[in-house]
């Protein structure tokens, strides 16, 4: 019995030292990790809302749940240039998460894939930038589209799916349509009030 207590005590001591060491490391790395997470979102927002002032993008939450982002033209936050939302859907082997930006008339102005773990060489082409080009060709197809004409060629639409990665292409396309619909509902449609606000300013 005495031996068990002694061994237990030693193990406790070792674990306590380990815990203390880790909490010290955690204090140093925690702000850094949070900063990195913030940067990922920030970069995606800048890509989704290229016309907005990068420092004047506001998150809209409801019951602590993120609903969408509002992008303003200037730091004064008077003129709204667009909204951004996160579209999610399970693709081939992972959830594909995309930040999508639309302007006040309901036209896509930018998008960026935030997270996915699709098959290397196939599904990863949703992010591939071809040689000599500056942006991913698959994502470029969404720019300037409205909710009415986003559909994959395989579903009688105009978005050209990636050869060998139909599932990933479809998941991303459908996630954008679904997210778009949700945003439209939240904003009560892309209609006059927004543009009148613009004119007032």
């Amino acid at each position: 019995m005495k031996e068990i207590l002694k061994l237990g005590g030693i193990l406790m001591l070792v674990t306590a030292i380990a815990g203390a060491a880790l909490s010290m490391v955690n204090v140093i790395t925690k702000p850094k990790i949070e900063e990195q997470k913030r940067l990922v979102t920030q970069r995606a927002l800048v890509a989704a809302l290229p016309t907005a002032d990068p420092d004047s993008i506001e998150a809209v939450t409801q019951n602590d749940q993120l609903e969408y982002y509002i992008g303003y033209a200037t730091a004064a936050k008077k003129k709204i240039v667009g909204y951004a939302f996160i579209a999610k859907k399970y693709g081939y082997s992972s959830e594909i998460e995309t930040m999508v930006g639309v302007d006040t008339t309901g036209k896509i102005i930018g998008l960026k894939v935030i997270d996915h773990k699709e098959t290397p060489g196939l599904g990863t082409k949703i992010e591939e930038i071809r040689y000599g080009e500056s942006s991913p060709y698959f994502q470029d197809q969404f720019i300037n589209r409205t909710i009415d004409n986003i559909a994959l060629d395989k579903d009688n639409g105009e978005i050209k799916s990636i050869t060998g990665a139909t599932v990933s292409s479809r998941a991303m396309t459908e996630s954008i349509v679904e997210g778009f619909k949700r945003l439209e509902q939240k904003l009560d449609g892309f209609k006059k009030p927004i543009t009148t606000q613009e004119q007032v300013n």
Partner: peptide, 29 residues
């Protein structure tokens, strides 16, 4: 002590793994 060497080794290894994990998350995301 011989009897508890494996758990002690595991704690030591897990500590360094967590350090690597945290540092990598912060500096090479």
């Amino acid at each position: 002590p011989k009897k508890i060497r494996i758990p002690i080794y595991i704690v030591i290894i897990a500590t360094f793994v967590t350090i690597v994990d945290l540092v990598m998350a912060g500096f090479a995301p």
